[in-house]
Amino acid sequence: MIKIQDLTIQYGAFKAVDGLSFSVNKGELFGFLGPNGAGKTTTIKCLTGTIKPTHGMVEVAGYALPKFFHKIKPLIAFVPDTENHYEDFSGRENLLLYANLYGVPHHRVDVWLDRLQLSEASDVKVRNYSKGMKKKLLIARAMIHEPQLVFFDEPTANLDIHSVKLVRGLLREIANSGTSVFLTTHDMDEVEQICDRVAIIAKGKLLDIDTPTAFITRHAERYCDVQYDHQDQLIRTTLHLDEPEDKQRLSEIVLNEKCVRVHSREFRFEDVFRKLTGEAYR
């Protein structure tokens, strides 16, 4: 669905994106991660036709950008991180406007309002919506023309836990229906739970790309929190089990000291992200 080859985007002398290459498959839920200023938004702007690449090749649904952007437009949608509705319009009016601009039947408006639990507030002006409702309306707006590829920029930010569950389920559902989802988020649990594949970038460069499970397996580091009683004094320490010295130290504690607590620390995707991006910024 997306093919990027050696993509470089420059603002003057500053390289916001530097030689990025990856691809996104059809029906894949693809996580695109990176710390602030890594070049995520710039890449999305390029993929949605707002800015032109300085160098490299970008293809969406088999059409090269920016030349065939007009052919890509009906196939994609973008859910931004900030709400950009007409506040004086009701939720339904906002959706109807976009339905008309895509030439889709109006009954789809009600379908998506219902799917995102907005039917009751559909005739209320968006000005009176909560942040979560506005976010859901953005998703409904993006999905109204049933695109083949949707870009989501932090879709669950500012949502309550029930809405987060709803949106995550919806993202998975969209991907399962064959629509590719390009997701950027700072919520690492979300990535671990729903993404098929993840790309991590920093300083405009791709650091790694793989499935979340493979990331954890490849980059996992084993740590152990130990609490023991040494001469009536409670001591607490963390040992890195991949280091021979720490491994030896753990054996000594278990054999010679009175252990109060031994707890292995679970290595999560968040730790992978921290490790990779931390190295990049070191």
Binding site: G49, P74, I76, F78, P80, N84, R141
Partner: peptide, 12 residues
């Protein structure tokens, strides 16, 4: 509010 950008992504 980047509404123009959102509209530019439609067929308009």
């Amino acid at each position: 509010k980047s509404i123009l950008q959102a509209l530019a992504l439609t067929l308009a």
